[in-house]
């Protein structure tokens, strides 16, 4: 009995240690984000909260127009998610509920896109976006990401689990395919869609390389690039302000993560089953 108790204590201890180690960078960032430049610069570093929290957060917010960047990132995330989920739903519906010529070929074509992540085609993708005058626009940051093999596969898996009887019954009732899609299939797929939304939100929000290349003006920058701009090499690094900016930038994805944790778990599970 005692041994089990000790064992449980030990597990608690190990878990608490793990939590502390994993949280350490962010805890330190939180502390530094309250310090003045002089407090930050002191060596050895002071590890107590400073007196400059409000100023740092305001400076970070104003310094690189973080508010605008958060709006941009949000618009882009939802723009991508909306298009991606809609198009994937339609495509998955086509693949699961119809027999048609070239079905396997088209499915294969979608499969091939798994081999083409952005970096592999970035050189010419950049030219395409440029010739469309989409550099520095929402379109350039949103539309290229609307097609997703992963989302289509996940939805195909989900659609396949819908009992055939539902289709037969709908046909009997004289439903058109689209009526069936909206009235029967979509409601059944709600939690999968939720999971896709959450997973994609984090994914798009955290994107870096493409927004770095495809935006010019401060009005179009996204938060991730804003972090680098806060640390711009042509100016000084005031770590208090930078960490304040980092904390602000973390909040939206963490909020989504905390509030929608169950959707997350589901999304992850789906990912590995694709």
């Amino acid at each position: 009995m005692r041994q089990t108790k000790n064992k449980i204590m030990g597990i608690h201890l190990l878990l608490i240690m793990s939590v502390l180690i994993i949280s350490l960078p962010v805890i330190l960032a939180l502390i530094i984000s309250t310090q003045t430049e002089a407090q930050v610069m002191s060596y050895p570093p002071g590890l107590i909260p400073g007196t400059n929290m409000v100023n740092n957060y305001i400076a970070a917010w104003n310094g690189v127009n973080l508010g605008r960047m958060i709006i941009n990132s949000t618009i882009i995330a939802f723009g991508v998610i909306f298009g991606k989920v809609t198009m994937s739903l339609l495509a998955a519906f086509a693949f699961t509920h119809f027999e048609f010529k070239g079905r396997n070929f088209l499915f294969g074509a979608i499969l091939v896109t798994l081999l083409l992540p952005v970096p592999v085609r970035i050189v010419a993708l950049f030219d395409v976006i440029r010739s469309m005058h989409w550099i520095d626009t929402y379109a350039g940051l949103i539309i290229p990401f609307w097609a997703s093999a992963t989302s289509i596969f996940i939805l195909i898996q989900r659609f396949k689990t819908v009992p055939s009887e539902l289709i037969d019954a709908s046909k009997m009732d004289g439903c058109t395919p689209m009526q069936y899609f909206f009235k029967v299939l979509l409601p059944l797929t709600r939690s999968t869609i939720g999971a896709l939304v959450v997973i994609n939100f984090i994914y798009i929000w955290n994107q870096y390389l493409w927004p770095l290349m495809a935006t010019n003006s401060k009005e179009m920058r996204v938060v991730q690039v804003g972090i680098k701009m806060l640390m711009s090499t042509e100016s000084t690094n005031n770590w208090g302000v930078i960490m304040a900016g980092v904390i602000i930038t973390m909040i939206p994805p963490l909020f989504v993560f905390v509030v929608m944790q169950e959707s997350f778990m589901k999304g992850f599970a789906l990912q590995s089953e694709k």
Partner: peptide
Amino acid sequence: VQYTGSYNDTLNKVKSAYKAGN
């Protein structure tokens, strides 16, 4: 007036904007 990032960033942006005609 636009602040377009570091010198490198700015040159790159000019490069691509020029090819795009803006």
